[in-house]
Amino acid sequence: MRSSKAGPEAQPGPLQSAIFGAVLGVDAVGHCLALATIFFTGALSAGLGLATAVFLMSSLCATLALFAFSQFRPALGIAQDTSVAILAPAVGIAALGASGPPQAQVATAFAAIGISAVLSGLAFWLAGRLRLGRLLRMFPYPVAAGFLASSGFLLVYSAIVILTGARSYAAIGAAPSLSGSCPMPGQTAGLGRGRGCGCTSWPIGARSCRWR
């Protein structure tokens, strides 16, 4: 009777680990493409290829940095999806509000995404510098889970928007006015309450009127 190998002696070697890393890399490629699609759809679709490359480069930089300094061995980095649902409408409005050729709009979108990353980086660095990490972990879990779940809901909604082609985040800023009835006021108001934060529910609620 053969005994199955288990435990530390069954750990993968360098080649198997490299293949495992490559598989996770392919997964990351799909992830970055999906995230780029949410920003660069509709009128901004000219920037989709470049956005995918930039998001992949962001993931690569994060992974290499985590390899270098992280206490977790090994740790992998990736472009994050949690804030994308909140950021995408703002990027769409900023980009499509920019005057000039489509290239200028794409450049504005990249600038908005970059500024958000710099602000997030500053917040991370400051939180670490001021030793707030332990304190921030006391954030109530139901609230944190609610934030992330509502981000997930917005991502699903965005995917449906992209699939149906009826409305897109990029088209939000192109809408001529806010006049007329809002297509789903109850839904967006509920979403705002679900986020549990007035500062995020206001822009979502206001922009939802342009999802037409």
Partner: peptide, 25 residues
């Protein structure tokens, strides 16, 4: 967590300067 936050914060500042998006673990 403070050390991790400082490190990933610096990465995001650099990545963001090139138009990249927030990336972490």
């Amino acid at each position: 967590e403070n050390r991790e936050l400082r490190g990933i914060g610096l990465v995001n500042i650099v990545v963001g300067a090139f138009g990249g998006t927030a990336s972490f673990m």
